[in-house]
Amino acid sequence: MSILSVEHLRKSFDGEMVLQDVSFTLEQGECLTILGNSGSGKSTCLRCLNQLALPDSGAIYFEGKNTLEKGYDVNYLRSKVNMVFQSFNLFANMDVLKNCTLAQRKVLHRGAVEAEAVARRELAKVGLQEKAHAFPASLSGGQKQRVAIARSLCMDPSILLFDEPTSALDPAMVAEVLRVMEGLRKEGVTMVLVTHQIEFARRISSKILFLHQGKVNLFGTPKEVFASPTPEFASFLALEGK
């Protein structure tokens, strides 16, 4: 059974169709990258997966249950399907450790000792164990994003969503975040990624989904999509300079 299955997703903003009949599946341990031009609906598609955006219609099956059905516990979904944002969204009023323990305590109801141990383990994984008591404002962009990734990992997520995680970073800091993501990939963390780092996506992804004007234009392994691009995908690649 696929861990995530998206069927006939539709979403509009103020009457403008952003997603039109988007369907795809994600298997455990896969890394799916959604590519597309600005306005193609890729971020909206990602945000629908943990319902930060609410689709108009369609179905999203997670662990075999339709998450869009009435009565489905959205907070449970979000605790299992976390998002890492372009703008980090670390809690500005808490230090790094508290950022990593808050949801563990309040959502997973872990004890203080366990939550801190988990947080320190995940911070070590992203190489920031010594920043446990720093506040977000004192970190560099790359460090913030690594903390954000550690914060998500603390939740033992089933799927990690990355919404343009390096787009707000200085070029020098992009590499450190991509390195962490590659490490997660090797560990077999299931992830869905929206990015403009095409070479990275090609290297890391098991599947690529190319959205064009809110529709699935191409879906397949990197090998397949780069070997036989549609005209739209070819012009997208040309535009991105690859």
């Binding site: 907070n75 979000r78 998002m83 703008s87 969204n89 500005a92 808050l102 959502v107 954000a148 914060r151």
Partner: peptide, 25 residues
């Protein structure tokens, strides 16, 4: 920053927890 609320909600915190622990302070 509205991102603060999104960050909290995306981890599964309820809207009341998000308000009390993240946004209001």
């Amino acid at each position: 920053d509205p991102g603060q609320e999104e960050g909290a909600r995306s981890l599964g915190l309820t809207s009341a927890q998000t308000f009390r622990l993240v946004v209001l302070p």
